[in-house]
Design a binder for these strands. Structure first.
Length: 356
DNA sequence: GAGCCGTGGTT
DNA sequence: TAACCAAGGCT
């Protein structure tokens, strides 16, 4: 019996071990010619950018329940999209998701481009996502390279060049391995292998369909790959947040953040700047409160870590005076609506602390 | 090219 | 517990 190619061996493994995921068409169904809806593939791939499968699942089903077709998403108010995305992080993805849906629905007659180049022109669709959609939704032999593929291939070929310099070589290797038949299954197979066997630490090499030929396993370097440039330390920033409560119904004062940048377009309670040299716990913070009132400092501070800094917020609470004038761009969110607001996680912590 | 951009789970 | 990490894209 002839030794199967690495590609064939992995596809055979995938036929037996493919993960069952809400947005995935099983290898059995794909073998019968059933391809997934490009809208579903696109939605899942955008949500999965730098985000775990476990975190994505409920958001994915929730979005499809709210907006079953790309035309529905295109017609939705952006505010509703931000509310539905709240908690998932990287909020520019949600803004680009809406833009992309509009492009597809209003300029492309509801059909996603079926080539990498065409897909890459869409907002929020970069090299990875374009290749993933082309491969998974249209079975085009695109070289799909994500973090899993980088890890699996640097180990299999023992690529010692650190990332991101190794990316061109990884892309070339993936292109060589990707078959004309079943390219979508192959891309998902490498990613499943990386997620379940060839994990960052303690890879289960004994269970790997590529163990016989893996240069990293043979050399013993696999667990240390891929090599990466060291990351910079995160600085600490501090600030204060003000939870203003309306007496009659316990509603909380909210406002919208600027449309771009950190937490762009999301909602928040009023607060100070977040800075490395700011004492959110000191009396200076109160000078930036939305109104001069009897602000009560909460004992527990809120800590939160963003991509590039640690944040510590001191939370103050006050009851709004009866004649309080609602500032421009602010609104009252009663308890029944608070859960549905476009509040990022850090702000949910703040509100929780403020109301406790 | 390198910095910006969230969150939650794992080690 | 602090660090690391996840189906990256944009500027």
């Amino acid at each position: 019996m002839k030794t199967p190619t690495p590609t064939a061996a992995l596809l055979s493994w995938y036929d037996r071990h493919a993960r069952v995921l809400p947005w995935r068409t099983s290898p059995e169904d794909r073998s019968l010619g059933v391809l997934p809806d490009p809208y579903h593939v696109w939605l899942s791939e955008v949500m999965l950018q730098q985000t775990t499968v476990a975190a994505v699942k409920d958001y994915y089903t929730g979005f499809l329940a709210l907006w079953p077709r790309v035309e529905d998403l295109a017609a939705a108010p952006e505010e509703d999209v931000m509310k539905a995305w709240a908690g998932l992080g990287y909020y520019s993805r949600a803004r680009n998701l809406k833009k992309c849906a509009e492009t597809v629905a209003f300029e492309l007659e509801g059909r996603f481009p079926d080539t990498e180049d065409g897909l890459k022109t869409l907002p929020g669709v970069g090299p990875y996502t374009a290749a993933a959609i082309a491969s998974i939704a249209f079975d085009r032999p695109a070289a799909v390279v994500d973090g899993n593929v980088e890890r699996v291939l640097t180990r299999y070929f023992e690529i010692m060049t650190p990332l991101p310099d190794a990316k061109p070589e990884i892309k070339a290797r993936m292109a060589e391995l990707t078959p004309v038949e079943r390219p979508g299954d192959f891309a998902q197979a490498v990613m499943d292998l990386g997620a379940t066997i060839c994990t960052p630490r303690n890879p289960a090499c004994g269970l790997c369909p590529w163990m016989d030929d893996c240069a990293g396993r043979i050399a013993g370097t696999a667990p240390s790959l891929p090599r990466k440039a060291p990351k910079k330390a995160k600085p600490n920033r501090a600030g204060a947040a003000f939870v203003l409560v309306r007496a009659q119904d316990g509603a909380v004062l909210l406002r919208r953040r600027p449309p771009k940048g950190l937490l762009g377009g999301m909602s928040e309670v009023p607060g100070t700047i977040w800075s490395e040299d700011f004492d959110g716990d000191g009396s200076e913070a109160l000078t930036q409160a939305p109104i001069p009132a009897e602000w009560h400092k909460r004992l527990a501070q809120v800590t939160h870590t963003f991509t590039h800094f640690h944040l510590t917020l001191t939370v103050y609470r006050a009851t709004a005076p009866a004649d309080y004038q609602l500032p421009e761009g602010h609104w009252w969110s009663p308890p029944s609506e608070l859960a549905g607001e476009a509040l990022p996680t850090v702000m949910r912590k703040v509100v929780e602390t403020g109301l406790t």
